[in-house]
């Protein structure tokens, strides 16, 4: 079975569908004669479609990386304290420097996400290796604690509206041209990870094997941490956190293709794009012409997929 061509075709079909679905009617055959249709397409539909695909791809790759870093399959960027860290950084810079430019906010969000993810890595290093389920639980607890801190500060400073956008179920209805381009940064960061794919795969084999093969585990950890944090920070700031993608897509692909990341990362990225694209489309169609957030659809499908994965392979971490 060749997964790449099938996934590419599925993604193209979904993207085409995404271009035509929406409150305003756009017929792709008339765009050159109808300036209104062209405007909707270029300002709203294309940006949204691209944003959805980039988000799904980048988050899935980030999921693979965080799973290799912690050597546990039941962790994703949404359950490792990363998203809450990004929100915390955004909140801090919004309060301290309200007029700060966008790039500065992005840096603050990324650095803060890095700090909380590093905290997670430090916490789990002390956990017994054999207790596979302790790691995701620690991640959930840390995410919960950080989330409450963010919420508390949000209440105190009257910024709950922002916090809701960042951390509640993410959605793409606000995406228009000029307001999603940061996701390209996430995609580039995820793309960079592919060049170090072998290193992440070796890291996944454990410290002993990695050291024996002459890999500097600390520098690979730093690279992984940076990519996961940048991807998550960009997604959180632009569309809000999308749950479950970074958790289930790496698991599904690993079941079929294994952990040879050089071969599997492109498939992971495409699968993530397809999954989020499909969920966004469903969200736009179920109560057409209104919308349900893609994050909510993913919450339902993702939870079901995750339960199925848990049920299928309880013995392996």
């Amino acid at each position: 079975m060749r997964p790449m061509p099938a996934l590419l075709m599925a993604l193209c079909a979904l993207m085409l569908a995404s271009l035509t679905v929406g409150a305003a009617h756009v017929d792709l055959r008339d765009i050159f004669s109808d300036p209104q249709a062209m405007l909707v397409l270029l300002e709203s539909r294309v940006p949204r479609t691209v944003a959805v695909a980039l988000t799904g791809a980048a988050l899935s790759v980030a999921g693979v990386l965080i799973q290799a870093l912690v050597r546990n399959r039941f962790v994703g960027p949404d359950t490792a304290g990363t998203a809450e860290g990004a929100a915390l950084g955004l909140l801090a810079i919004t309060i301290l420097l309200p007029s700060s430019p966008l790039w500065l906010r992005m840096i603050a969000a990324s650095l803060s996400a890095m700090a909380t993810t590093w905290l997670f890595l430090t916490v789990i290093r002390r956990l017994p290796v054999r207790e596979v389920m302790l790691i995701p639980i620690a991640g959930l607890v840390l995410s919960g604690v950080l989330g409450s801190v963010v919420t508390f500060i949000g209440w105190q400073t009257d910024l709950m509206q922002y916090v809701g956008v960042w951390l509640m179920s993410g959605e793409f209805s606000g995406v228009i041209a000029g307001r999603y381009e940061l996701l390209w940064v996430a995609a580039v960061a995820a793309g960079l990870a592919w060049f170090a794919a072998d290193r992440f795969a070796i890291l996944g084999l454990g410290d002993q094997v990695a050291t024996g093969l002459g890999l500097s585990t600390a520098s690979v950890m730093r690279l992984g941490l940076a990519v996961v944090s940048v991807v998550t920070a960009m997604v959180v700031t632009t569309v809000g956190m999308i749950p479950f993608v970074g958790l289930v897509v790496p698991n599904l692909v690993a079941r079929i293709m294994g952990d040879n990341l050089r071969a599997s990362l492109p498939v992971v990225a495409l699968s993530g794009a397809v999954l989020v694209m499909a969920c966004d489309l469903i969200g736009r169609l179920v109560i057409y012409p209104y919308e349900v957030p893609a994050g909510m659809i993913l919450g339902i499908f993702g939870a079901l997929l995750f339960l199925w994965l848990l049920h299928r392979r309880p013995a392996h971490g």
Partner: peptide
Amino acid sequence: TEELARVMAILGQQTAIASRLRLSELVAF
């Protein structure tokens, strides 16, 4: 460490590894 990896190979006691590599891919590493 990368220079030492060309002088000696070490195999520690294996603990349960969650990694899902094909045997050929593992040996290739």
